[in-house]
């Protein structure tokens, strides 16, 4: 088990490093930051001085080695757009996204487990057709549009919820609702599919023959086994949840890492781009290992294979 986790971590670590290298060079392709940070009428000499001060005038490979050296000392550079250490800014924003994503994912998992199981209990029935259509719609809906329509209905027309920002509990409703839509749609289909497979197995027939109540068969006997593939898919979805978070945070003005990253990209804030990418990549990497461990804990067969 631990050799497996170790092998997997080294592989993912290599991916994180490759990603950082890629982002380092890509970010520097965007152009000269001096034009964005100095006033329009700044002289060539001023721009030169600005670049010298921030080390942008060195050849790119020297900048790269300096970046690696700083990384080794846990120095992540200064976020030019805010004049603060980049990692400090990033770590302030990260928990906001984490909270949003965790709640959205937990709610999506719970809702998907209930709806998907009930749909699989009677395939082709009215509830199944309804649940399938709704989950497909959830998986296909453009999240930015759903967010805008939600603002239009709940904030502008009805005046029930605030349009954007943070503060009260009401501020959480729309961002979470929009963010959980796609995971809910996809997970419901996975639960339904794997539940249908499990329900056709002999041990379910035995339980039914014993006279166990239908509800108990579905939610106690079958769901535990049906959740295995769901965990894998939920893990894959965590990365795409960050995609949703970017859109949701931009629309609802949520001070999370997605919004921070967009700001950093648009403002050519190299240090901030790199630190947000690093934190996101490491978070996803840790998440994947946790999911592997959960998977092994839930399914004894995997534990045996790996040892």
């Amino acid at each position: 088990m631990f050799t497996y986790v170790f092998r997997r971590s080294t592989q993912s670590m290599a991916a994180v490093v490759a990603l950082l290298v890629l982002v380092f060079f890509l970010a520097r392709l965007t152009g000269d930051p001096a034009y964005l940070y100095l006033p329009l009428d700044s002289t060539e000499a001023q721009r030169q001085a600005f670049n010298e001060l921030n080390g942008f005038d060195d050849p790119i490979y020297i900048q790269f080695f300096r970046y690696l050296g700083d990384l080794a000392q846990l120095d992540f550079g200064t976020a030019l757009s805010r004049n603060r250490p980049a990692m400090e800014v990033t770590l302030e924003a990260f928990p906001e996204t984490l909270k949003l994503a965790t709640i959205a994912m937990a709610l999506a998992l719970f809702a998907a487990a209930v709806v998907g199981s009930l749909a699989a209990a009677r395939p082709g029935g009215v509830f199944d057709r309804l649940a399938t259509t709704i989950s497909l719609a959830g998986a296909s809906a453009p999240d930015f549009w759903v967010a805008i329509v939600a603002i239009l209905v709940f904030a502008v027309s009805l005046g029930l919820l605030p349009t954007s920002g943070t503060g009260s509990a009401l501020h959480w409703i729309m961002p979470i609702g929009v963010l959980m839509l796609r995971p809910f749609g996809l997970l419901t289909q996975v639960v339904r599919g794997s539940m249908m497979g499990v329900l056709s197995q002999p041990y379910i027939k035995t339980a039914r023959a014993k006279g166990v109540a239908r509800r108990r068969i579905i939610f106690v006997h079958a769901l535990r086994n049906a959740l295995l593939p769901v965990i894998t898919v939920a893990g894959d979805l965590m990365a795409s949840l960050v995609n949703g978070a970017v859109v949701v945070e931009t629309i609802f003005g949520w001070p999370g890492i997605g919004k921070l990253m967009i700001d950093a990209i648009v403002r050519r804030d190299f240090a901030l781009i790199q630190s947000t990418v690093l934190v996101t990549a490491v978070a996803i990497f840790v998440m994947n290992i946790v999911i592997d461990l959960i998977y092994a804990a839930v399914d004894p067969r995997i534990r045996h294979q790996q040892t």
Partner: peptide, 10 residues
């Protein structure tokens, strides 16, 4: 390993 939208943005 990285969110596709962010990669595309960069």
């Amino acid at each position: 390993s990285f969110p596709s939208l962010l990669l595309a943005l960069i």
